[in-house]
């Protein structure tokens, strides 16, 4: 009995959290699709989530593309490196590394910022103040962030794809001494639409999840600065875990036999 009780308790706690998140998600999504919408808020969040994440996503992508070319060259140099490297770079970047790394970087930036902002609004009663001003916080605060995340992450990943491939190209040409024309032709030949599309679908899913986690933890934060700090940490951790989990699920949906 003393062994089973804590197991039962934590199981109940686990499903309680799942239920809460599910309810929160349903409520928020229903506010995304019902008028009134707040275009000004959506625009502001698109700028915040999309535009201001460009530097960090671009840097991540270019170094990832570069290291990818370098590493595969040491691994494949004895075989047909000339055609293998453009293939490896373009497939890895578009399918996996572009969306996942961009998702994780944006989770660190955006989920944390959202959780901190909404959490501070919660503990300073700004969310209550919104309600008394007849403005639904789900509609005004959360829906614009979810919409912006859903729309901006695919755009960011598209940019990451291009910059990542460019990184691989630069290393191959200037360090490994490849022929530029052949490299570009091989890249082009190996690039599959389904790889890019699956990557963009992943990006949209990640964008939704990472803004959702920021909103959920911020909205439910309690108890002053410490509570907001806790919410921020939880937002980033849960967003990252959900990115890996959903990455596996989306990959299975697209590529499983």
């Amino acid at each position: 009995m003393p062994i089973l009780a804590p197991i039962g308790r934590s199981t109940i706690a686990f499903f309680t959290v799942i239920g809460r998140v599910a309810l929160f998600t349903l409520l928020s999504v229903s506010h995304c699709v019902r008028p009134p919408i707040f275009p000004r808020q959506i625009g502001r969040q698109m700028l915040e989530i999309g535009f201001y994440s460009l530097p960090v996503v671009g840097l991540t992508a270019i170094f990832t593309g570069m290291v990818l070319a370098l590493q595969s060259f040491t691994g494949f140099s004895r075989f047909s490196a000339e055609s293998a490297i453009p293939n490896i770079v373009v497939v890895s970047i578009t399918r996996e590394l572009g969306p996942v790394l961009a998702g994780l970087m944006v989770a660190g930036r955006v989920s944390a910022a959202i959780a901190a902002e909404i959490g501070t609004m919660r503990v300073t009663e700004q969310i209550d103040a919104l309600t008394t001003l007849s403005t639904n916080p789900h509609k005004y605060l959360i829906a614009p962030r979810l919409i912006a995340g859903l729309l901006m992450l695919p755009l960011l990943v598209l940019v990451a794809d291009i910059i990542g491939v460019l990184g691989g190209y630069l290393v191959s040409i200037f360090t490994l001494g490849f022929n530029p024309a052949t490299y570009l032709k091989n890249t082009w030949d190996f690039m599959q639409p389904i790889d890019v599309i699956s990557g963009l679908v992943k990006a949209a899913v990640f964008g939704f999840l990472l803004t959702l986690m920021g909103c959920y933890h911020g909205y439910n934060s309690r108890g002053g600065a410490q509570g907001v700090g806790q919410a921020t940490t939880n937002a980033v951790v849960s967003a990252s875990v959900l990115i890996f989990l959903s990455n596996y699920i989306v990959t299975t949906l697209f590529f499983a036999e």
Binding site: E117, T120, M121, T124, E125, Q126, D128, A129, L130, T132, L133, S134, T135, Y140
Partner: peptide
């Protein structure tokens, strides 16, 4: 209309948009 104990002003908006919030949004 409610005046909160801690003020609860929206710190992401300038003062006039705080005051005009209900006028604009509602």
């Amino acid at each position: 209309g409610m005046l909160f104990q801690g003020g609860a002003l929206f710190d992401s908006l300038p003062v006039w948009q705080n005051v005009a919030f209900g006028l604009i949004q509602v």
